[in-house]
Amino acid sequence: MSPYAPSESVARALDALPRERLPALLRLMPKAELHIHIEGSLEPELIFKLAQRNGVTLPYASVEALRAAYAFTDLQSFLDIYYAGASVLLKEADFFEMAWAYLERAAADNVVHAEIFFDPQTHTERGVPFETVILGLDHAVHRAHTELGVSARLILCFLRHLSEEDAFKTLEAALPWRHHFIGVGLDSSEMGFPPAKFERVFARARELGFHIVAHAGEEGPPAYITEALDLLHTERIDHGVRCLEDAGLVARLAASRMPLTVCPLSNLKLCVFKTLAEHNLPALLDVGLCAMVNSDDPAYFGGYLNQNFVETFAALPQLGARQAWQLAANSFEASFVSDEQKAHWLHQLEVAVLSA
């Protein structure tokens, strides 16, 4: 059971909110985003701008041609274009500009806190120093706090299609800048690359005091979620939508309040679900799981956080104001911040409901 529940006045306001006012509440309410790949926020316009600035030749003639290529059939077809887009990121200013653009959009969506994934191996493999990546991103994070009022933290992710040895090298290379990121995660191609492959490097990351998250149960089976829990000791499951195929796993996730960072438009774009109306987000909430809404790779999947909320709620009439409040509260519950900060954001959420 969630440790958070709306006050009586807020519960009454949620129950009384007319359906036509629900989109306004979704946009207005404060929320945390815990599953956002910063390289996946790189819009085509910025890709072409950086390509021109850095002398990078792209395999697409125009912004429109690049957007037209976003017809993905699965995770791998997306990743092929994702890595091509990242090739324009070469200098510290490029990483700053990419992250700043996302954080401005996050502020416009009333995201008060973001825990942002970045993939250093995508860049170091191309000869870009880790220092260039982390300093550009960190600059944007600090500027967002002072100028936008958005709290943000960075989480270093290992690419699971590469070796554990390479992940170890990446972690050790990152340690001089360890105060710039709060955790480590696991992303990229899921099928055929189980969490067990990275058990030792995650043990090392835990020894170093980092938070642990991992992608599992998007395309991969529920067994990958179990491995992430048992072998990596993850504190959040990124995606996790296939957990409903295993009743025992669902009970375990519910009892432990293990967060699931669900990404509806991503799931639609990558054909995890054929339509948003078939998405299992309502079922995840109905069985008491700590699910929340995120945008994943918004430049590629058709929407930032508010767009995910609005389109998902429009497609699933069983989701109403109560579920909106719960999803936002879950995002705060699952964030790696102090209890005092969570309480502050929950109060802001109550104010938003009462003014909706």
Results as ranks from 00 to 15, higher is better:
residue 67 R to P: 06
residue 130 F to K: 08
residue 240 G to Y: 06
residue 162 L to Q: 13
residue 273 F to Q: 13
residue 278 E to H: 09
residue 154 L to E: 06
residue 56 V to S: 06
residue 307 Q to L: 13
residue 47 I to A: 13
residue 78 F to W: 07
residue 175 L to Q: 14
residue 55 G to W: 03
residue 191 M to V: 14
residue 211 H to I: 01
residue 7 S to M: 03
residue 6 P to I: 00
residue 196 A to L: 14
residue 342 K to I: 00
residue 84 A to G: 02
residue 235 E to K: 00
residue 324 A to S: 10
residue 303 G to V: 14
residue 100 W to Q: 08
residue 205 A to H: 03
residue 337 V to Q: 01
residue 104 E to P: 11
residue 6 P to V: 05
residue 203 A to E: 12
residue 331 S to V: 00
residue 46 L to Y: 00
residue 347 H to E: 14
residue 119 D to N: 15
residue 310 V to T: 15
residue 43 E to A: 13
residue 47 I to D: 08
residue 204 R to D: 06
residue 306 N to V: 14
residue 268 L to V: 12
residue 156 L to Y: 10
residue 99 A to Y: 06
residue 73 T to F: 11
residue 283 A to D: 15
residue 32 A to T: 00
residue 129 P to V: 07
residue 15 D to Y: 01
residue 96 F to H: 14
residue 59 P to R: 07
residue 39 E to D: 15
residue 122 T to Q: 14
residue 165 E to I: 03
residue 35 H to L: 02
residue 168 F to I: 00
residue 207 E to H: 09
residue 208 L to Y: 06
residue 298 P to T: 09
residue 206 R to A: 13
residue 287 V to Q: 03
residue 237 I to N: 12
residue 75 L to G: 00
residue 249 L to R: 05
residue 128 V to R: 10
residue 121 Q to Y: 11
residue 286 D to L: 04
residue 118 F to I: 11
residue 161 H to Q: 11
residue 333 E to G: 04
residue 96 F to A: 01
residue 111 V to F: 01
residue 230 D to C: 06
residue 198 F to K: 02
residue 185 G to F: 03
residue 104 E to R: 13
residue 178 R to S: 13
residue 161 H to K: 10
residue 298 P to C: 06
residue 17 L to N: 11
residue 157 C to I: 09
residue 92 E to Y: 01
residue 288 G to Q: 03
residue 289 L to G: 04
residue 216 A to M: 04
residue 193 F to R: 06
residue 221 P to W: 07
residue 105 R to C: 12
residue 84 A to D: 14
residue 315 A to C: 09
residue 46 L to N: 02
residue 300 Y to K: 03
residue 195 P to N: 09
residue 225 I to Y: 06
residue 237 I to K: 08
residue 135 L to I: 00
residue 18 P to V: 07
residue 200 R to N: 13
residue 196 A to T: 15
residue 133 V to I: 15
residue 345 W to G: 03
residue 181 F to Y: 15
residue 146 T to I: 09
residue 107 A to D: 10
residue 149 G to T: 07
residue 282 P to C: 07
residue 188 S to V: 02
residue 135 L to T: 12
residue 67 R to E: 15
residue 107 A to M: 07
residue 8 E to W: 08
residue 262 V to W: 09
residue 321 A to Q: 08
residue 351 V to N: 10
residue 274 K to P: 07
residue 102 Y to N: 06
residue 207 E to Y: 04
residue 264 P to L: 06
residue 245 E to V: 00
residue 106 A to P: 12
residue 167 A to L: 01
residue 49 K to N: 02
residue 4 Y to T: 04
residue 18 P to I: 08
residue 2 S to Q: 05
residue 291 A to E: 10
residue 133 V to F: 06
residue 278 E to G: 10
residue 1 M to V: 15
residue 267 N to F: 04
residue 309 F to Y: 15
